[in-house]
Design a protein around this nucleic acid. Structure first.
Lengths: 215, 215
DNA sequence: TGAATACCATACCGTACAGTACTATTTGGG
DNA sequence: CCCAAATAGTACTGTACGGTATGGTATTCA
């Protein structure tokens, strides 16, 4: 994890080497997602991807270095579809609902649930990775929501005080319960998802329709 | 974990035996909280508490059985101070703020953060334990909030539709962001905690002051 | 008190894992 | 084409762990 851990890179970068380390990263990602850091051995990874264990060490230094590379790769990508949404032409109701819907659909994917679990589980052992994840995950979602809130404020359709704080409240109303329940294997139904989003949108808009009382 | 896992109990229960298994559970709890299921070996636990490894097996069957006993013991206790609060005499503002404050103070304790991390981490491997935790944790908090909301509704001071749904939204606004950040080692300041609670209370009350539009 | 049995101490078994050593083979830039 | 370096293959080391076996000691209950 620390600077020298991932330092034993091959001294000469080659196309083949990049491809190989990419293969290792991708295969390791799926296995870590499925069984956690301790649940996967390097021997398994090597067996799955082919090649030799020594080569893993030349690319990633050690198991923790490989894990860090895997996590950093996974951090990007999950929220791309949410961030790409342009809701600027929609009403506050429609925009919030649309963003919330996309967010929930992303978060409840099995792959993301596994990733979320992995990050919470290992953020004690890898605090730096935990922070990378927080920025590229929850904070990225909240910023996307905050951009929409700020735009609606500029258009005079919302009075929400600090847009990021308001976006955080909305984000958390929409995601927390659904996310935790899905992580425990009790997948929320479509109906429940819709009701949660509708309720969150309603509370949010009623709370921020008039002049804000939030400092 | 399954039925026969924890079945190899001592055939004769004695005071000494109960004390011993209690000691084992308590010592193991602290170690599991600190380092997770895989991070603790039975040899360590035995060394910490004294006695013999074989005896751990007669009491708990195997490592998973010990873990289950530990978790079930930990589930009770964290939220006792929150559930005990009687806010019935307070205004909606004061009552919600008081409950939220107590809840956050409980959730942000190091011991609880470790417990939360442990449950998320291991809920994949121990789904039954995950459900026990969900009921005795987040759901218990939400029910306590829902009782207060329902009482305020009966008194005509709130119109929040389904109290449990409203309580869930409030609970999640108050806890999610603070909890995740604290779990990542970025402990929120007192000021941030206060602002989060104030903002959540304000949005909630403005959202539910008038006639509810929530189905 | 005495027999049943819970508990202690310790050694042990089989397995699994991170990481290394070393040789053979393949690749790729000069 | 050639040689330095990357990769493959594989064997190995040391360690750690879950779980069992055994034989002796302390408790408990009748």
């Amino acid at each position: 994890m620390s600077a020298e851990a991932a330092a034993r890179r091959p001294v000469r970068r080659t196309r083949r080497g990049d491809e190989k380390s990419e293969q290792i990263r991708l295969a390791a990602a799926e296995m870590f997602l499925e069984r956690g850091f301790d649940g996967v051995s390097l021997d398994e990874i090597v067996k799955a991807v082919g090649g030799s264990k020594a080569n893993v060490y030349t690319h990633f230094g050690n198991k923790e270095g490989l894990f860090a590379a895997v996590v950093e790769g996974l951090c990007e990508g999950f929220l791309a579809s949410v961030v790409a949404i342009d809701a600027s032409g929609l009403s506050p109701e429609e925009g919030l609902a649309r963003l919330a819907r996309a967010l929930v659909e992303t978060l409840l994917q099995d792959r993301h649930l596994a990733f979320h679990r992995l990050m919470i589980a290992e953020s004690g052992r890898f605090p730096a990775l935990g922070r990378v994840w927080f920025e590229s995950g929850p904070e990225t979602s909240r910023r996307a929501l905050a951009r929409f809130v700020a735009a609606q404020q500029r258009a005079g359709r919302l009075d929400a005080g600090d847009p990021h704080r308001a976006a955080t409240l909305f984000h958390d109303m929409v995601t927390f319960n659904l996310l935790v329940r899905a992580m425990l294997g009790d997948r929320p139904s479509e109906g429940e998802i819709g009701q949660t989003i509708d309720a969150a949108v309603a509370v949010f808009l009623r709370g921020y329709a008039g002049r804000s009382i939030i400092p």
